[in-house]
């Protein structure tokens, strides 16, 4: 029987390297996937430009942050970027509304098949991709300031006397808190407000909702505004936690889509669950359990090998394997997403 401290050590170890990073990354993916899923549910297409729109919003926020910092403004222990966020959101909303007017509206009016809209979003993706690089360049940008840690690994060790440390970054804390608030707000909006109800009605049955006097333009506009806000916030939180680089944001598109699909696209709750499924499948399957097991079993049983299911080089493939398996069992995702 392992001692209490061993169990605690194993628990802390697991929390520090699997649970906390997984929750933070999962939350970032979930916010991104929420935007994708809203657009899919209401505008009825998979928006491939999402990753680059995310980069755009983050870029504006970074520029605004730098400006604020140069003016000597700061947000105490919190990152200044949170103050600059509204500006980033405003710019992204503008970008989305303009692209909708220039590009997507035409196909919506023509009632084009969804794949046409997907392809149009691919065009928007290319253009925004280029614009972002023209403005801010290709470099890595860091814009985090304020207090970096809520809890440092060493402090935790000193505090508890355990072998293993537990670190919580403020960016992780902020990410989770903001994600919870946003998800709450979004569900309240969709369930309780008039605009939210009309969005759900439009999503469920477009013709019927038009009959009952819902203004489709308004629904579309609100959808873009919410999606743009979610996207920008997701991008900024991600950038605060890691760093900003246009190429990485483009690459984020795939896991975000995987998250939205695996949860059942068009279902907000599915996007959230999907985000965590993708994030945790990466970490859980490639994590070597040797150290955790060593704490839990008698010394003589301690494993020789790393107890790793698959090498980290396969982590990206692993999240897709999980995706494919989920789809085989539930062809429209965990929460039975929309089929167009």
């Amino acid at each position: 029987m392992p001692e209490m401290t061993d169990i605690l050590n194993a628990l802390v170890l697991f929390t520090n390297f699997v649970l906390i990073p997984g929750i933070a990354y999962g939350s970032q993916l979930a916010l991104g996937a929420l935007g994708v899923t809203l657009i899919y549910g209401i505008l009825r297409f998979s928006n491939f430009a999402h990753g680059d729109v995310m980069a755009f919003g983050t870029m504006v926020t970074i520029l605004a942050t730098w400006w604020l910092q140069s003016m000597g403004v700061s947000f105490g222990p919190l990152p200044t970027a949170l103050l600059a966020l509204p500006l980033g959101i405003a710019a992204t909303v503008l970008l989305c509304l303009v692209t909708d007017k220039l590009v997507y509206r035409y196909y919506r009016a023509k009632k084009s098949v969804p794949v046409t809209l997907v392809m149009a979003s691919l065009g928007v993706m290319f253009v925004v991709n280029g614009i972002v690089r023209f403005i801010i360049g290709t470099d890595d940008q860091r814009f985090f300031d304020g207090e970096r840690f809520i809890m440092k690994a060493r402090e935790f060790k000193n505090l508890t006397g355990l072998n293993e440390g537990l670190a919580i970054k403020s960016s992780q804390g902020i990410t989770v808190v903001i994600a919870i608030i946003l998800v709450g707000l979004l569900f309240w909006f969709l369930q309780k407000t008039r605009a939210g109800k009309s969005m759900r009605a439009y999503s469920d049955n477009e013709d019927l909702s038009l009959l009952s006097g819902i203004d489709p333009d308004k629904v579309v506009r609100i959808t873009w505004i919410i999606a743009a806000a979610l996207t920008t916030i997701a991008g900024v939180l991600y950038g605060l936690d890691k760093s900003f680089k246009p190429f990485t944001y483009f690459q984020l598109l795939l896991p975000i889509f995987a998250a939205a699909i695996v949860g059942g696209i068009g279902q907000p709750i599915g996007a959230i669950v999907g985000g965590y499924v993708i994030a945790f499948s990466e970490v859980l399957i490639t994590y070597p359990y040797k150290k955790v097991v060593t704490y839990l079993v008698p010394e003589s049983w301690a494993p020789e090998s790393l107890l790793q299911l698959l090498g980290t080089e396969y982590k990206f493939a692993v999240s897709f394997m999980i995706l494919v398996i989920v789809l085989l069992v539930r062809p429209t995702g965990i929460f039975r997403g929309k089929v167009l």
Partner: peptide
């Protein structure tokens, strides 16, 4: 442990977790 990481990917917690566990 000799573990690969891909540049330009979203998140490295899996890699760091594996490296830390191997020690």
């Amino acid at each position: 442990i000799n573990a690969a990481h891909e540049d330009g990917k979203g998140d490295y917690s899996a890699e760091v977790g594996a490296l830390a566990a191997a020690g």
